[in-house]
Structures are given as structure tokens and as C-alpha cells.
Amino acid sequence: MSVAIFFSYVIFWLIALLYVSGFFGMMEHNHLVKKLMAMNLMQTAVILFFLLLGQKIGGITPIAVPGITDIDAYANPLPQALMLTAIVVNLSTTGIALTFLIVIKKFWNTLDESEIMRRMDK
């Protein structure tokens, strides 16, 4: 196995690790702000994954460069366009979640999830 292939596997594993750690951080962490950060980790992992999909070994930036007309020379622009949308979605999710956090803080005076869950049942 050549080193390049080994590392390209490593890349995917690292992204998967990032995703999984984000996922578990989100599920396990009790602090609501930290949960949100873990969620951002997850989203970043997904975006990285998508960008890797559009990647070609030796592909160049998908911006028209005079003289290069061969389409295969460019990296696939579609995933990048999609990811722009995804980033926007992430930003709005984060913004809304933070707004919720402030409301939650005002109402419950804590950001500890298990504590709120306990009081919620009352």
C-alpha cells in the first residue's frame, strides 16, 4: 500500500473521528453551549467530507483560469456550491440555538441539561 493511499484513508478516518466525537460530545455533554459547539464540529466534519468528494488528485481550484479549458482539470465545483448552502444553514442554526440558549438561561437560570430535564417533569 502506497503512503498516499494510506493517508487518504487516514483523512477519511480523521473526518469520521471528528464527526463521531462531535456526535458523542453532543449527546453526552450536559452543558448546552458545549452541546452546540459539538454540533458545529459535526457540521464541519460533514462539510469536509463533501469537499473531499469533489477532490481530484491534482485538481485545481474551480475558478476559470485562462488557458485551461479541460473540465477534468478542475475540482468538481458542485460539492463546493452545495457546501456554501450548508454553511449558511449551519450559521442560521447556530444563531437560532444561541437565541434559545439565552431564553433558556433566563427562564431556568441554569444551562445544565439534566437539571432542566429534572425540573421539566415537575
Binding site: L52, Q55, L84, L91
Partner: peptide, 20 residues
């Protein structure tokens, strides 16, 4: 992102990360 030859995304992420 830059390394993945996606400058457009990188640029967006840069401004957005400031905002976030």
C-alpha cells in the same frame, strides 16, 4: 478548505466564523 482547493467555501467559512 483552502487546501481542498475550495477557496470559495474557505472565504465564506472565514467570514462566517467571524460572525459565529
Amino acid at each position: 478548505y483552502l487546501l481542498l482547493s475550495a477557496p470559495d467555501v474557505a472565504f465564506t467559512e472565514a467570514v462566517i466564523s467571524v460572525i459565529s
